[in-house]
Amino acid sequence: YYKILGVDKNASEDEIKKAYRKRALMHHPDRHSGASAEVQKEEEKKFKEVGEAFTILSDPKKKTRYD
């Protein structure tokens, strides 16, 4: 999950949140509406992965379990 968000394992809550926003905007489906179906599908997959990574890393209990 750290790799997906592009943050270090010791990243602060704020750094995780900023990285999530950056990656979410980058891969958001609306940004790729004019792209081919294949690209849209890949970006949607990445967008979901970013969301999942943020869900785990932003919750202290889940993050501890993950680490």
Rank of each mutant, 00 (worst) to 15 (best):
A24S: 14
V7I: 13
V39P: 04
K62I: 08
K17F: 11
F47T: 07
R31A: 12
D30M: 05
H32N: 03
K63P: 03
Y2V: 00
H27V: 01
A11N: 01
P60N: 11
G34M: 10
K48R: 13
K46E: 00
Y1R: 01
E42P: 01
E38L: 08
A19H: 04
R23S: 12
K48I: 05
K61I: 14
M26S: 08
R65V: 15
Y2K: 02
E44D: 08
K22F: 08
I4G: 08
F47Y: 14
S12A: 04
D30E: 12
F54Y: 15
F54M: 06
D8W: 00
A24I: 11
K41E: 07
A24F: 10
A37V: 13
A53F: 00
Y1Q: 01
K3V: 01
L25I: 12
G51Y: 14
S58E: 08
D14T: 08
K48P: 01
I56S: 09
F47V: 02
G51K: 15
D59S: 05
N10F: 08
K45F: 02
G34N: 14
Y1D: 11
A19D: 03
S12E: 06
L5F: 05
D30N: 10
K3T: 13
K41W: 05
S36V: 07
S36N: 11
T55K: 15
L5Q: 08
A35E: 15
L25F: 12
D67L: 01
D67M: 02
S58N: 12
G6N: 03
K41T: 03
G51I: 15
K41Y: 00
E52H: 06
R23C: 12
G34F: 02
L5V: 06
V7N: 01
I4H: 08
T64Q: 15
S33W: 09
K9W: 03
K17I: 07
A35C: 06
L25M: 14
Y2R: 00
E44H: 08
S12G: 05
F47N: 10
V50I: 10
E52Q: 10
S33I: 12
Y1V: 10
A37T: 11
L25H: 10
K3I: 01
E15W: 00
H32L: 06
E13G: 10
E49R: 03
P60G: 10
D30L: 09
P60W: 06
E49G: 03
K18E: 15
K17L: 13
K9M: 13
F47Q: 05
H27Y: 05
R21K: 13
K61R: 06
H27F: 03
V50D: 03
P29G: 03
I56F: 11
Y20F: 10
L5D: 01
R21H: 15
I4R: 05
K3C: 01
L57I: 00
R31S: 09
K18R: 13
L5K: 06
Y20M: 08
I4K: 03
K63V: 03
K41H: 03
F47C: 02
S12M: 02
H28L: 02
P29A: 07
E43K: 04
I4F: 03
H28G: 06
K46L: 10
A37I: 11
S33F: 11
K62A: 11
E49N: 05
E15Y: 00
A19I: 02
A53R: 03
D67W: 00
D8A: 11
K41R: 14
Y2L: 02
N10K: 07
R31D: 06
E13P: 15
A24Q: 10
L57F: 01
A53Y: 00
R65K: 15
S58C: 07
K17V: 12
E38N: 05
K9N: 11
K17G: 05
A19K: 02
E38Q: 10
K41F: 02
D30C: 07
D14M: 09
H32V: 08
R65N: 14
E52V: 05
G34Y: 06
D14P: 03
R23D: 04
Y66R: 08
K41C: 05
A35S: 11
D8G: 08
Y66Q: 15
K18T: 09
D8L: 00
R21Y: 14
K63F: 01
R31F: 06
T64H: 14
Y20A: 11
S58Q: 05
V39A: 09
K22P: 04
E44V: 06
V50F: 03
A11Y: 00
K62E: 15
K17Q: 14
S58V: 06
K63G: 08
A19L: 01
K17M: 14
D14I: 09
A35K: 15
Y1I: 02
A24E: 02
K62G: 08
K46H: 06
Y20W: 13
G6P: 02
T64G: 14
A11H: 01
A24G: 06
K41P: 01
H28I: 04
K45P: 01
A11S: 10
T64K: 14
K41L: 07
K61S: 12
V7K: 02
A35D: 05
D30Q: 08
E43Q: 15
R31I: 06
D67R: 00
V50L: 14
E42K: 07
D59P: 00
D59W: 00
K61G: 09
G34W: 04
A19Y: 00
S33A: 15
E43T: 06
F54N: 09
K18G: 09
K61C: 12
R23V: 13
L25W: 14
I56W: 13
K3Q: 14
E13Q: 14
I56R: 08
A19R: 00
F54R: 07
K61F: 10
D30A: 12
A53G: 07
K62H: 08
F54P: 14
R23Y: 03
E44W: 11
E13S: 12
I4Q: 09
E43F: 00
K22V: 14
S58A: 08
R23I: 12
F54I: 06
K17P: 02
T64A: 15
V50A: 06
Y1A: 10
R21I: 15
E15S: 04
D14N: 07
V7M: 03
H32C: 04
S33H: 15
G51D: 11
E44K: 12
M26T: 08
T64I: 13
V39Q: 11
I16Q: 06
T64R: 15
Y1K: 04
V39F: 08
L57E: 08
K9Y: 09
E13T: 13
K22Q: 14
E13W: 11
V39E: 09
L57D: 06
A24D: 08
E13I: 15
S58Y: 01
D8I: 00
E15P: 00
K45M: 12
P29F: 02
R31E: 06
K18C: 11
G34A: 13
H27W: 04
A53H: 03
Y66F: 09
H32K: 05
G34P: 05
R31W: 05
D14L: 08
Q40R: 13
H27A: 01
E43I: 03
F54L: 06
E13R: 11
D67I: 00
D30K: 11
R31Q: 10
D14R: 06
Q40H: 03
A37Y: 11
A24H: 08
Y2I: 14
V39C: 05
T55E: 13
K3R: 10
T64S: 15
E38F: 05
